[in-house]
Amino acid sequence: MSIIIDPSACTGCGLCREVCPGNLLCADENGRAAIRRPADCWNCAACLKACAQTAIALYLPPEIGGNGASLRVSREGDLLHWLFSLPDGRRRVITVDRRNANHY
């Protein structure tokens, strides 16, 4: 499992480096976020949620069924907008409101 970081969107704020539960994110020579070892990512999405620039996307490698889709998240107060990008160009948004409990 892993993430991909868009270097043009990263501002080098360091929040993702701070929250990664595996200490996997570091700064590259330009101070932008980089992942030390992509295969060591647990897909917890902590870095996606920490990134105010929506610069980080999570994806499924083919080994576990991935076909090129990716997932980002943007935060707006208690709302988390999950943005799905599918390989055929389609997009989908699912919004979760933290004030609502799961029904399942």
Partner: peptide, 17 residues
């Protein structure tokens, strides 16, 4: 989908994909 986004977002990605 939302329930899984709240604990294991990769599973929702898999379903959507």
């Amino acid at each position: 989908y939302r329930a899984y986004l709240n604990m294991a977002p990769a599973q929702t990605l898999k379903w959507v994909e």
